[in-house]
Design a binder for these strands. Structure first.
Lengths: 180, 180
DNA sequence: TGCCGCATGTAATTTGTTACATGATTAC
DNA sequence: GTAATCATGTAACAAATTACATGCGGCA
């Protein structure tokens, strides 16, 4: 659902061709957001249609068919609008990291509120996990199956703890007052 | 791509109706694997067709239309086969957690090798992140944008560190010798 | 000249999502 | 009786994945 915005943000960071975008999504960007070249070309077409980005056929390298895409003000506003709407769903954290990138290029976008919400959700989930831990895995000896189930739960607990610590560290960066 | 297997595993843990599965995926399971009731009913239909699961129309509660699904040996073998094939892609870790659940119900499935591979990948990625950290964020003072980009990188670093520590802790549980 | 990397796309299939639809039982 | 929950599905649409397809330029 956020793929077009991921592309817009990548273009804001650096205007590129579809091919270059695909490579960037294969490298650094791909570590936390994924997009194939087919998705990229499709979305670029749509976004040109929608007037979010402009195309410039590159002539410098003569006779190459290279097209460089650049975000127009309308697209930029769309990114800002999207960043302000609160994400829900399983990968809302990855979406939030994407928004942070947008904030880094065209910020500040007022993401503090969403982060607070994510922190609250994370705390609640951690509490749930801890309750399950006490209820199901308090016994002295566990079977192999139980140990594995406990390991899965621990992955969840550690993820929450790590993420909460990170989020609390990031909070001051997004504070309205500090963002001046 | 792993949704049908996620459903199979949930059914191995406890035979259920489509409705019950949907609820389980909304609760505990949903914390790390997501599926809607439409997906569930679609996949259940396909898996009955494929002979992976059987349906029993529940008669106890008389005149309810409740159908209880149960994994057949063929489906069980399919889970084992799938668990042994190595996952690639962005959410291969969530897939691995899913496989751990399978191992907990019908194990041991020999997942040690895949975990080793995931650990190697994780270490390599962490090294990449650390290199970027040194190259781009070593400076004494960073702009707001740079601080945000650094925060994104840190989220990646912490995730890898947390996950590697967890994975090394889980390794002995999957060790072939210990799995007897 | 034959292969690799650049650069762009289309087509077919499979998944996932959203909306719609129905009927039975239970609790108030 | 009426609202909520149980229980099942279908239909339409959007998105992602996989495979196919083309053509240029450089270099060995």
């Amino acid at each position: 659902m956020s793929t077009p915005h991921a592309i817009l943000i990548a273009l804001l960071e650096k205007p590129s061709s579809g091919y270059d975008l695909a490579r960037r999504f294969d490298r650094a960007i791909g570590y936390f957001w994924h997009a194939t070249h087919q998705q990229i070309y499709r979305e670029l077409g749509r976004m040109v249609e929608a007037g979010w980005v402009s195309v410039v056929e590159d002539e410098t390298a003569a006779a190459t068919r290279k097209k460089v895409y650049c975000v127009l003000p309308v697209g930029r506003n769309e990114v800002a609008r999207w960043a302000r709407e609160t994400a829900v769903g399983p990968d809302s954290r990855n979406v939030f990291l994407l928004k942070l990138r947008a904030d880094a290029v065209i910020g500040p976008l007022g993401l503090a509120e969403e982060l607070v919400k994510l922190i609250d959700d994370g705390r609640a989930r951690l509490a749930t996990y801890r309750a399950i831990e006490q209820r199901d895995f308090g016994a002295a000896s566990l079977t192999r199956g139980q140990q594995l189930q406990y390991a899965i739960l621990k992955a969840g607990i550690r993820t929450q703890e790590m993420w909460l610590a990170w989020a609390e560290e990031v909070t001051p960066l997004l504070d309205e007052a500090a963002a001046r």
